[in-house]
């Protein structure tokens, strides 16, 4: 096991930041720590790196105890490396000085040279951080963090600064780098797409509590509650009685009964020719929005109001009466 957290708690004054957090990462895992702002995810990252001290709980890093009741290893002595949200490049040093500033980085010269080449930084080595672009700064920060060859790489919101276009590219680059160095990685993000595309394991945090952990696809299709379901994309939370056939249910406090999460694309409109026509539900389209690759309609049916995604070329209009079914 590369990283193991047990019952980590942290309070500032009287506000609870983290409560009883436990999870583990295996060697080679890429773990996404997902949560909205204020969920405590960055604090957790700083605790793992040693920059903050937890109030209680234990942390084992690469089979070595780094936090328990009587011990708090200082960050310099931990076998991990943190990439900061704003990169924290030393503005008074060139890129190459930045990269080689890490303790013992000279020993890893071969690896670093390879990474520099891989990340396309050869031509930037003599520049200063403010002279290069955001994406380039990101790569420099990453290479700098990897320069000490840590067992665990920590990234704080690696993509939050970037606009959508760039994000896509950088995400791909990151994935390529992760694949190449095969370092165990833990990153923090508020963006679910990051988690789904990059991580093989996701931990969802809300208000300092772990809501769910598992593989991205598992969480997507089998959320444990309304919050997680919604976090992973647009969905309809419907009382289980409306979808008797779906087997993944959870108790929903809002509806006060068992519920299911049905994604908008999982609802099918049925025509009279279909076999399912008999069991289908009646509804009426009350609004319609065009998104390019799909269109979203809101359908009202008795007390339900559901979002449904349809192929873009389908001809419908507001007020149409339709039939649909929610088989999963």
């Amino acid at each position: 096991m590369m990283l193991s957290l047990k019952n980590i708690s942290k309070k500032y004054d009287d506000t609870t930041i983290l409560e009883d957090i436990s999870f583990t990462c295996e060697k080679g895992d890429i773990v996404g720590l997902i949560g909205s702002s204020g969920s405590g995810k960055t604090t957790l990252l700083r605790i793992i790196s040693g920059l903050e001290t937890p109030d209680s709980g234990t942390i084992k890093l690469n089979n070595e105890m780094v936090n328990d009741k009587l011990l708090c290893k200082s960050p310099e002595k931990r076998d991990c490396s943190l990439v900061f949200q704003d990169f924290a490049l030393f503005p008074n040093m060139t890129i190459s000085d930045n990269i080689f500033f890490g303790k013992g980085s000279i020993k890893n010269n071969e690896l670093i040279q390879e990474l520099i080449k891989f990340c396309d930084l050869e031509n930037l080595l003599d520049r200063y951080p403010h002279e290069i672009s955001g994406g380039e700064q990101q790569r420099v920060a990453l290479v700098r963090a990897l320069s000490i060859n840590p067992s665990l790489l920590l990234l704080d919101e690696p993509l939050s600064h970037l606009d959508n276009d760039l994000k896509q590219n950088i995400r791909n680059e990151l994935i390529k780098i992760f694949e190449k160095v095969k370092t165990t990685t833990l990153f923090v993000s508020h963006d679910i797409e990051d988690a789904m595309t990059m991580a093989n394991k996701v931990v969802v945090l809300k208000d300092g509590l772990v809501e769910q952990k598992g593989s991205p696809s598992d969480i997507y299709s089998r959320p444990l509650n309304r919050y997680v379901a919604k976090l992973f994309g647009k969905t309809n939370i419907v009382a289980a009685s409306h979808a008797p056939k779906s087997y993944h249910r959870f108790f929903d406090e809002f509806l006060n009964e068992d519920a299911v999460s049905i994604r908008p694309h999982q609802i099918e409109l049925v025509t009279s020719k279909s076999l399912k026509y008999k069991t289908a539900i009646d509804g009426k389209i009350i609004s319609k929005k065009f998104y390019g690759s799909f269109q979203e309609i809101i359908v009202k049916s008795e007390e339900l109001s559901l979002a449904i995604h349809l192929e873009p070329e389908r001809k419908i209009k507001i007020g149409d009466k339709i039939k649909f079914c929610m088989d999963l």
């Binding site: 790196s49 200082s74 960050p75 310099e76």
Partner: peptide, 10 residues
């Protein structure tokens, strides 16, 4: 920046 250099073991 200081957090970064600590994390780098400097």
């Amino acid at each position: 920046i200081n957090d970064a250099s600590r994390s780098l073991g400097i």
